[in-house]
Design a binder for these strands. Structure first.
Lengths: 145, 145
DNA sequence: AGGCTTTTTGCAAACCATTCGCAACAGGAT
DNA sequence: ATCCTGTTGCGAATGGTTTGCAAAAAGCCT
């Protein structure tokens, strides 16, 4: 069984557990999401889902995405000046770099930064509920310094 | 001369330099922005500006905010699930913590985090154009650990 | 001041991603 | 197979923000 299939199964379980029915349309979207290795937006997910569930509507895509997000199995990212993009939330936490030229999204993570964030919040009397960190970047033109 | 007056003057210069005319409406908004110590949204800025320039329209507020942002003298922040909020951009760079209960915005900055971000980007072959870091937080309930 | 050009204004309409109301439809437990 | 309840697609609504336009105001040159 591939990773994608496992993920699709995971999505299905999560929805069922929440009393959400798995329809033909939802199954299609779940598969599409499970297979996606990028960060597609709702319209793109709709486009991809139409192959497997002809006639699926954009509303249904949005509704299902919201349900999946509520169950915590996918994440919604609202990058600057763009519509929301989605990704499955099974690996460990990570943040994003967005190439401002191409729109490409690169994942990264830094325990050190996370620790500093928590430390700063605590010093000011807060606990972090969640955070958002995005680096808007441009490919280095001149090889290495 | 107060800080606010200096800032208002700074805004005025920036706009004039860009060939933008200072109208009664804009002067009012500039003052409001210069005096603001919080992070108001367009509607709130409009409300505050109406005292000094009765009849000023929300469109004018938006148009002027856009111009100021283009000149780099104010910053626009798009926090999660809220309309854009603005602040003057004269002090040094900082990031934000948002109290998820109250909506309060707290400023902070960490050179160490900034350095780590730059380092990470560089390692992956990128330069940072700008970044966004927001901590969504909740006040610690139990005093200090 | 007067006149002329260019920018700006307020209004209403347009935008765009996302959500919602609704009547027809379809899971899925029994 | 049935019934109950959740779901669908559609089109319309939303809400923050932007835009087209004709009227009004800035700024400039004498």
């Amino acid at each position: 069984m591939t990773n994608a299939q496992q993920r699709a199964e995971h999505f299905t379980q999560a929805l069922r557990a929440a009393g959400v029915r798995i329809t033909r349309q939802r199954a299609a979207l779940l598969d599409v999401l499970a297979e996606a290795e990028d960060h597609p937006d709702a319209v793109e997910l709709h486009r991809r889902s139409k192959d497997r569930a002809p006639g699926i509507s954009l509303s249904t895509v949005y509704r299902t995405l919201t349900a999946l997000e509520e169950q915590g199995v996918i994440q919604r990212h609202q990058f600057e000046g763009a519509s929301a993009r989605f990704e499955h939330a099974d690996g460990e936490h990570h943040d994003h770099m967005i190439d401002v030229e191409t729109g490409d999204v690169i994942e990264f993570c830094s325990d050190r930064i996370e620790r500093l964030q928590a430390e700063i919040a605590r010093e000011m009397g807060y606990d972090i509920v969640h955070h958002r960190m995005e680096l808007y970047v441009r490919r280095r033109s001149n090889g290495k310094a």
